[in-house]
């Protein structure tokens, strides 16, 4: 840990700046463009995912420390379960609503 503390925290700065950038881009897309509602939702949803991943790696240390393997496995597991349950349910249950 000591060794890491002394170095200039370049990762944190990059993470902070790119988080800011992503936030402004998202706000810009939502407020300053005339894209359709659907496209805007898709774009800012995508940016939100990128930002969440960035936060996990830059600030929440998922890939550091003793438990990094466990943490990555847990997050992957959580994502898979969530995708199956939420996306799966929406897919299965959205029949008959588009006619």
């Amino acid at each position: 840990m000591d060794k890491k503390m002394k170095r200039y925290p370049i990762g944190h700065v990059v993470g902070f700046l790119s988080s800011l950038l992503l936030t402004f881009v998202a706000a810009g897309i939502a407020l300053r463009t005339s894209l359709s509602f659907h496209t805007i939702m898709l774009l800012i949803g995508g940016l939100a995912l990128v930002q969440a991943a960035l936060q996990l790696f830059m600030f929440m240390h998922v890939n550091e420390g003793e438990d990094r393997k466990t943490q990555v496995i847990n997050i992957a597991y959580g994502l898979i379960v969530a995708v199956i349950i939420v996306a799966g349910s929406i897919w299965v249950m959205s029949f008959g609503h588009h006619h």
């Binding site: 897919w91 299965v92 029949f95």
Partner: peptide
């Protein structure tokens, strides 16, 4: 086992794709 649950209610009629 996590991705087969719809086979319990095929007759709900979710469509040929599902």
């Amino acid at each position: 086992s996590m991705v087969v649950w719809v086979h319990h209610f095929y007759t709900m009629g979710a469509g040929p794709g599902v």
